[in-house]
Each structure stands twice: as C-alpha cells, then as structure tokens.
Design a protein around this nucleic acid. Structure first.
Lengths: 332, 332
DNA sequence: ACACATGATGGAATCGTTTCCATGAGACCG
DNA sequence: CGGTCTCATGGAAACGATTCCATCATGTGT
C-alpha cells in the first residue's frame, strides 16, 4: 500500500528540516501566534518539500473535539434521502466539515450500532432521519452529541431540534384537491411510521365531512416489494377507491406500477397524488401530480442547525407545495 | 450541547472506578491478554456504570492507522452514484468500517480539496469516481493512500485498480441492436469525459460499416440543464437522426424531456437507448430500453478491493446487459 | 526446598498535534 | 543607561488510547 515504505512526515520532521522547534512549526502552519518572516519562509519551504500534512488525529486528540458531521439516512438510494444528503454535503463543504454517512435501512438496531460507531469515532454532531424511538436516542444525547433530526421528529425527544416539512398542510392540500374533484373514497398509502401524515389525513377527511374508512389507510415497510404489495393489494381489494395519496416516492412508484399491472388507468380509474417531486414524476405516464418538499433544503438547514453549536437550536418546518400535473381527474 | 457539563469518561476514569490500572482496563475491554475473572467483572461493571466508550482518536493515534473509507462521487443525487454509494456502504458495514462521503461535482479542484481533507483526517482508503487526471492523483498515492477507482479509470494511473463496467460491449450491443432495426443515423449523447464510450461507439459503427458522423456525437456537462440543452440541440438541429444512445440516466432523462417538448415521438420518430437501468425507466412513457450496469455491485466490489489491504488488487470489469422495453422501433 | 514457568497486573512510553510557559533578544521610553 | 515591554522562539505537558516491560504471586516439577 505504501510503495516507498516511507512513513508519513510529521511535524517533528518539518521542525528538524527547517531547524526550528515544533511549536514554531505549529504556529506558522496554523497562522496563530507570531513568527518572523524568515522563519515562516523556512517552515513553509520545509513543509512543502516534505509534502507535510498535519494529522487530524493528533490535532483532534489535543483539542478534544473531532470535526465532522454524522449523517444517518434510511436508504441513500431513495432520491429523497439522496437529495437530503446532498444538502448536508453542500453545507458541510462550505463549512469545511467532513461528513460521515451511514444507511440505517430503517432498522433501529442498525441505527443504534451506527450511533455507537459515531460516538467512538469522536463525531459529535449528527443529522439523522431517525428510525428508533426517543429512548433509543438517550445514550447519544447523554454522550453530549449534537443531534438534529430531519424529515421525521421523534416523539420522546422534544428538545432535539428537527427539520421537517409541513406534512399537515401538505396532506390537507392533497385531500382538499381530490375532494374538490369529487372524490370520496380516498386511500392513503403510508410508510410505516408516518403517523403524522396519517393523522393529518384523518383530520383533513373529517374536515371535509368525508367518513374515515380505516381500511383505506394502508401502511407498508419502506422497500420496493412491500410498497408494491401494499399498492396492489389496495387496488385489487378495494375497487371502489377513486383516488390514492402516496406518502412517498417509493409508494408512488409502486402505485403506478401496480395500477399498470392491474390495468387500472390513471387518472381515468383512479387519481394519484404522490409525496416528493422526483425527476421521474414528470417523465411518468401520466405525469404525476405531487406534493413537493425540498429535501435538499431540508438537509442544508439541518446541517446549519447542527453546526450552530452554541445557541439552542429551534425546530424548523419547511413548506410543501402542490404541483399539479396530469394524474388527477374528476371522480369517474 | 452538553447539558450536564460532564465530560466524556476516559479509560483512566474506568481504571479508578474499578481500582485497577489503565493497562488492565485496556486489556479487558479489547479482549487481548489475560485477566482474572474477578478483575474482568470489576472492569466491565465500572465501564458500564460510567457509560464508557473508548475513543477512536486515542486508539488510532497510537496504532497509527485510522479506519474508514473515503468515498468521492460526482453527485450523490444521481441514482447511479447513489446506488454505487449504497454498495460501498453495504460492504463497509459488514467490515465494520466507517465511510466518509464527499461530492466532487465533477470538479477536479473540489476533488483535490476533498482528497486533502481525507488525508488530514487520516483516512487511508479511498474509493473515487475520478474527475481529475492522473497527475492530480499523484499526491494522494504518494501519501500512501489505498485508492480504487470506480466507474471510470484514469489514463495516467494504470497501477490503480479500477472497477468499471464493460462499456465497450455495452455500447456495441446498443449500436448493433439499433443497426439491426435498420438505423443508420445514430447519435451518441455523452457526458464530458466518457471518452471510452465514445471510442467504443465509433468502433461499433465502423464495424457495422456505418460512416461516423462527428456531428452526431455530442458531449455535455453533467448537469440537468447542460444535458437538456445538448439533447434539444441535437434533436432540433439534426432532424435526420433516427436513434439516440444516451450515455447516462441524466442524459436519457433530458432526451425524453426534449423529445416531448419538441413533439418528437419515441419510438416512432426516434429510438432511444439509455445507459443505466433506473427505476423510472420502466415508469417512463414509453418504457425505456436500457443498457443496465449494476452500480450497487460496482460499489461493493470497489469496497472489497480497497479493504483487501495486502495483496495487489487487480482491476475488475463488470458485465452490462441490454434490457429491451419499448423505446426502440424500426427505422421510420 | 529450589529453580523456573506461568499468569495477573500496573507503570510508563508512545503516537502527532496544540498550547502554556519560560527565556532571550531587541526596541523604546524616560 | 536601565527598566520595561513586545516579539520570536523552543521545551514540555496534555489529550486518550495501546502496548512493552518489569514486578510479584502462585503453582510445578525434580
């Protein structure tokens, strides 16, 4: 791995090469303290000659703080989380911070394990789309980690700031739009754990005077297969539904696929609104009407929050937007 | 950030609490060396009581090696790279390694900067989709980093192992499929830097006896806007093209969009083959015929390679697969 | 009973950096 | 000219872990 067998040069090597003390080298290179022009040049020259890079290990150990941000998302393959990660990466880059990424797979156990690694690694700032409950995050908080939640909040951890989108309004907008088109039998296809959205769905229905049918609220695990099964089951079993709200882009994708498979035409037979405006929503046939939430922004804001060390961070709610395309029509 | 104002407990604290020496604590906790059952229990109890986590900083400094893998991709938002990242994450998790992620934006300067950060951070294994040339990677290699390239190889760095897909065969398959349908005016929409694919395209054309028209090979930057501009320009300027091969999912997306905008029907007016099988390829109208390459596998294999420290790693070429859907038809 | 092996244990060195502190050399002012 | 102040500089401690080595107690074989 190290072909020349030559070990990495340290500050001591530079000090010797420049014929000064290590303290002087450190001062010159970090820009703190004072040094004569002559010494500065000597040090800089020696450092360049030896291709010296200060080791973050030594520095961090001394300073007792590691830089870097931990980022925990359920699935980096999901466009929504990829965009969220991109927002975090972007903010971290402008702050000069490195980002440590982990995929939890929505599994609290894996999440706990990743948090453990994070703590050992000395990362002290974490942005997470939490899978576990409040209790699970106790150890992390007790260890003094700066945590910011994104996309979801955790019930038992109200003091942890969170960046979420205004799901209530988003769901209500979708329901009112569909109700306005005359739909009464509206189904909600949710990912497990989207309790907020389910509640908002119930409320919105109630507000329009539409009776809530529990059978029309189906929850699925966050995998393609589970989503497809849920969507197909719903469309097959309840042929009376005339509109579907999908709680995420995976669910939306599954619904389109299942509808096509079952020869259910969108929007003639059922109308469809999906959460998340992904690129393919426009490419899809028909182009999908969506509730857009800016994942990128969400990630960026979360990173800002977690980097703002001192002050107590407040939670942030981001707006959602209804983007009308062609997947909704009047009740058949 | 640390509400209880209580600093993180160290091995020394545990040693005092358990009334033993620090060496003993280290031995018990790391499982090396021997210790009596009694002491072991005392230490374990004390560690649990103090919620002790060994600091990776101290350990790594002493061992003079940091764990962890650096991952550099152009854009995490691109499904292909997201999947590649997922493969890396998956392999790293089973090896118990942490992953530092950075987005280069296909900018050699940003890439160089990220490499610098990685080196300072003590990360000594990097998986990269390289943007810069061989010269740019010199410093990294001289520093003894274990580098593995993914998706693309770098011309000036032949000794660096790379995991790429068999672009030559992939392109040839696409061209032969189209030529078999009677197409003669076939355009290739490439991302800047896809020299391998462009060359393969020329060769495949020549092999079929089709004259190569340089104007039908257009290269675009790796952004949505640039891709759209290139696709629209091609379709508008050269109405004689009857088939397009898109060198990536971004280019494919742009082509679909541009075609729709310009009222060019797929596949009636032009046939389209896209590199990368992304979920929306099936949802698209019409469903897209694609050259599939397993990004996930690519990431996993790259991670395997970079983790296999000792032995000299060989490059790997992954197969591609033509998946026929409905975006290609006979020449009009 | 003695030499020796074995096992348990703690002290101290070490890793590479930052930073506190002491020292020495000029500079400046009265 | 002497006192004080500032600036440049280097030695050494500290950070938290691992690990070498010395020490001591306890068997064990002859």
């Amino acid at each position: 791995m190290r072909p020349d067998g030559q070990r990495r040069s340290t500050i001591k090597d530079v000090a010797e090469a420049a014929e000064v003390g290590v303290a002087t080298v450190s001062r010159v290179l970090s820009g703190t303290g004072s040094a004569s022009r002559e010494t500065r040049e000597k040090v800089l020259a020696a450092a360049a000659r030896l291709d010296y890079r200060p080791s973050a290990l030594g520095r961090n150990l001394r300073r007792r703080r590691t830089g870097g941000i931990g980022l925990l998302v359920p699935d980096i393959t999901d466009v929504f989380y990829a965009r969220l990660a991109d927002g975090v990466l972007s903010c971290a880059r402008s702050a000069g911070e490195a980002v440590w990424t982990g995929a939890t797979g929505d599994d609290p156990e894996r999440e706990a394990h990743l948090i453990g690694t994070l703590i050992e690694e000395g990362v002290e700032r974490v942005i997470a789309v939490p899978s576990g409950d409040g209790e699970m995050w106790g150890p992390a908080l007790r260890h003094g980690l700066g945590v910011v939640f994104a996309e979801r909040a955790v019930a038992g951890a109200d003091h942890v700031p969170a960046v979420v989108s205004d799901e209530r309004t988003g769901v209500r907008t979708a329901v009112e739009y569909l109700a306005g088109l005359g739909h009464r039998r509206i189904a909600f296809l949710a990912r497990h754990g989207q309790t907020q959205r389910v509640r908002a769905f119930r409320e919105a229905l109630a507000a329009r005077g539409v009776p809530v049918d529990d059978e029309l609220i189906v929850q699925a695990q966050a995998t393609r297969d589970a989503a497809y099964a849920a969507a197909a089951g719903l469309l097959q079993h309840r042929s009376d539904v005339t509109a579907v709200v999908a709680g995420g882009n995976l669910l939306g994708e599954a619904t389109v696929l299942a509808a096509r498979e079952l020869d259910v035409r969108v929007p003639r037979d059922v109308s469809l609104i999906m959460f998340d405006d992904v690129p393919w929503a426009e490419l899809c046939h028909p182009p999908l009407t969506v509730i857009s939430q800016s994942a990128q922004d969400m990630g960026y804001r979360a990173a800002e929050l977690v980097l703002r060390e001192g002050r107590r961070a407040r939670s942030i709610t981001l707006p959602t937007e209804l983007i009308v395309r062609a997947s909704c029509g009047p009740r058949r």
